[in-house]
Nucleic acid binder design. Structure first.
Lengths: 116, 116
DNA sequence: TTATTATATGAACAGTTATTCATATATTGA
DNA sequence: TCAATATATGAATAACTGTTCATATAATAA
């Protein structure tokens, strides 16, 4: 049993936390979203797409790495709805899914004090 | 070579992306930050701490799991500066590091609610 | 149709990470 | 001092993830 000096206060907070804890499913969705943008290669792709939509070839040109690796990462970003894709002839053109993506990126950059 | 219909436009975007790509070090810092909050167990801890500061025992009460596992996750969150700790007698009391943490959580929750 | 180009994907391997278990450290009270 | 409590941590293991390689799919042109 906990015997801390703030037993009553912390217990209330813990109870409130349990009450307000998002559903397991939502926790999973949010963590999946964070996970999608927690790898340097994927983060670079997102930063690159701030400049506008690009097909795979130019994304590879912008971020480096092999076409295969970039394709795999694009798939993950797409599955987690960070980016969207449309076919245009032989090419698939990718772009950021919506303004929330950019907002999250910039907010976190502020948090870590890095200039973008 | 890329032969897409938007060669000129995409090439410009790719060049701009390379020019504006954050330093490798900053990419690493941002992705590390996302990684810290991309696991369900850590995310639950952050959601719990929205209710206010808590000692380890009550965090365990709020999010479940073993004391050891929670302590390991607290360490990761602390190292990545998502939470801060202070000793209070026998207890270590944890709280969210600053308002950015909450802001990021809520922004992403909004994003998830809008989409998916 | 076949050849070429652009992109995607399955499998395997290497590197990473979360949990458990046992134990260590630190504080308090007797 | 010793015992009890609260928290942290090292090691081991299992699960997960990113990349590479080879190949598949899809669109276009000849």
């Amino acid at each position: 049993m906990a015997q801390c000096d703030h037993e009553a206060q912390h217990h209330l907070a813990a109870e409130a936390a349990k009450t307000n804890m998002p559903q397991e499913e939502d926790i999973g969705r949010v963590s999946a979203l964070f996970k999608a943008i927690s790898e340097p290669s994927r983060l670079k792709i997102l930063f690159a797409l701030r400049q506008g939509e690009m097909c795979v070839y130019h994304i590879v040109e912008a971020v480096g790495g092999t076409q295969s690796a970039v394709s795999h990462q694009l798939r993950i970003l797409r599955d987690s709805r960070m980016i969207k894709a449309r076919r245009d002839g032989q090419n698939i053109v990718y772009s950021l899914a919506d303004e929330h993506v950019l907002a999250v990126l910039e907010l976190v950059c502020t948090h870590v004090n890095c200039k973008i």
